[in-house]
Design a protein around this nucleic acid. Structure first.
Lengths: 342, 342
DNA sequence: ATTATTTTTACAAACGTTTGCATAGGTTTC
DNA sequence: GAAACCTATGCAAACGTTTGTAAAAATAAT
């Protein structure tokens, strides 16, 4: 019966109506061959006692769980949460539950999570691959996913070796545009607060920066490049060093907005003025960037859009059963604000 | 066999070894009564073919899914993601998968999610109740959770009517402290950029502000209170109005940091100086606040700690089987920075 | 009244596990 | 050589569904 912690099952209802579980099941799913009266009675009763399908059982029977997996390296930045929001906003109505796994850039954790999600029979996986995975070149865990015909979609970070859908933003182009903007604005000694060595996202932005300098015949000066770990604090000391150079930079391109605002603070504290003496441009267009003083120019990645497009890709795969998914590269957009005004 | 999209099961292994599924099951779980050789053989083979327990089946059998539910009104703010990170950091090692549900303050969605999580046999639910739920006074869905003996823990937003564990931060106290700080600093016309009407968090902070004024015999002036929707943009017009008053405020207490930084921008644009003419204090101590110009004083809520403590509460419940969970109220902490320096 | 037809229901198997109980051999004990 | 005892394995049921097929009941047609 309805003992406290035992949820009511189809069998309970069957017992109540002295009929078979199959009848109850069919009644609840509006099967055509069920008598109208019994159908109504059963449905009303089920409603009353708060019957709810056991997803586990359901999942076991048809190898589907009504769950989607999202694997990201972190959720502490605006970018990732915005992507998740985007996914959510599109998939909400389909009634999926989203399982979110955070890898901290670890290959092992990523592998474990993929396996666990597969064991949980998720109906799709959205993956932003970890740096370690990218470096290691181990993709067996992903091949596994595809082999099992589970839709796999790369969000933000892709890997060419695995043939599946992806939504990414061209980091290189974004960095190039930011640098070009600084150059066109008249800056010549452009510093770059880059991300950690080896991280794809750092390297691509660094390359965009470097290539743009070259394109405009501005000599690359490695003294003008400093390392950060993406966090604001990590930009303080490097910026202080840059601005203490005998010939300090007239512009700084930060690998993200956190780094850039920290740099701005240091620059101002040291008595330089922004944007007249030093121009600053960031990356990610975080929601706070427009409100800085001065407001921060930044490369927008439309993080939420990534999630939305990824969700749409997934739905396409589902609805049309197309297995060949698109690889969409979204264009970054430079937002010009006070920190780089002429 | 090992057909492409059919994961290998215990039965497959049993067939391979011409033994029964039960033997395989026992071998895999190191049951004492299994011959050492068969155990080793089976384990090696399972390893080789990448056998993995089907969580759905497992869950069905023992009404447990290895999954936890997290229900929050939003994930677009720092506060919520930090809480999730906190949960994650503690629960990581236990191997749980976290299902995250976003309610957008909707009672209906919250109810649906709770039901779905129950249907998925989650082993615990961390809930930050939606405003609509709070207002409606409908808690049947939560009673349901408790009745089924599923650990339920309120994070950040609690409801006294449901007897279960909670980790919250005293909003009232935080607002009081912020206001008091402004008063002690010498401000007398203190404006408040509050949150929407009816939202508990807005009201509590508003009350803290108002009570503090009263305590210090500063007349409450409703002209100095303006509404926002927590987003930066929504603070622009109200701040402009406040600063255009014949007798403009000498301090602004913002309901959160986004609102406060937008206010700061407007204030500076209008030619006032911070903190000399106007002091500003925010709420949440967002990671960007320290880097503003001037840096923003703010009330810290230790968002990550909320998650960590909630996770610990859950583990206590699990390990010791104590059903009577604590209600922990964390103290807010005022962080004083440049925006309120004397 | 008998057969044919339709409507409604029940049975049983399956999804992948685990586990109490039974049983098949093998070994020891008397 | 029988009784008693291990050791290793298998059987079957259970978790909660769904669904193909069979069967029963009701209705219609002859």
């Amino acid at each position: 019966m309805n003992t406290p912690n035992h949820p009511v099952t189809i069998k309970d209802i069957a017992r109540k109506f002295k009929c078979s579980p199959s009848t109850v099941s069919r009644a609840l799913s509006n099967h055509a061959l069920i008598n109208e009266d019994t159908r109504r009675n059963i449905q009303e009763y089920a409603q009353k006692v708060g019957y709810q399908r056991n997803s586990l059982s359901l999942g076991l029977r048809n190898s589907k769980s009504g769950t989607l997996g999202i694997i990201v390296p972190t959720i502490s930045h605006f970018h990732e949460t915005a992507m998740i929001e985007g996914l959510q906003s599109v998939l909400q109505s389909r009634g999926y539950i989203m399982s979110i796994c955070v890898t901290n850039e670890s290959y092992l954790l990523e592998k474990e999570y993929v396996e666990k999600l597969l064991a949980n029979r998720v109906e799709g996986i959205f993956l932003s691959i970890s740096q370690e995975t990218y470096d290691s070149g181990h993709y067996e865990h992903l091949e596994n996913v595809l082999q099992r015909q589970i839709p796999l979609i790369f969000i933000d970070r892709e890997y060419d070796g695995v043939q599946t859908g992806s939504i990414t933003v061209d980091d290189y182009l974004g960095a190039y545009a930011a640098t070009e903007h600084l150059i066109l604005r008249g800056c010549r000694r452009i510093a770059h607060l880059r991300g950690p060595n080896g991280l794809t996202v750092s390297e691509r932005r660094f390359k965009g920066y470097k290539d743009c300098l070259e394109k405009y015949n501005i000599p690359y000066d490695e003294n003008l490049v400093a390392y950060t770990n993406f966090k604001a604090e990590s930009a303080v000391v490097p910026t202080r060093r840059l601005m203490s150079l005998p010939d300090p930079p007239d512009a700084i391109f930060g690998v993200n907005d956190y780094v850039s605002i920290a740099a701005m603070q240091v620059i101002i504290e040291m008595g330089f003025s922004i944007p007249t003496q030093v121009a600053v441009v960031g990356f990610d267009n975080a929601p706070f960037s427009a409100y800085f003083n001065p407001s921060l120019s930044s490369v927008n990645r439309s993080s939420k859009l990534i999630g939305e497009e990824a969700a749409r890709l997934f739905l396409t795969r589902l609805d049309s059963n197309i297995t060949q998914l698109d690889n969409i590269v979204l264009p970054p957009e430079l937002i010009i604000r006070g920190s780089t005004l002429r």
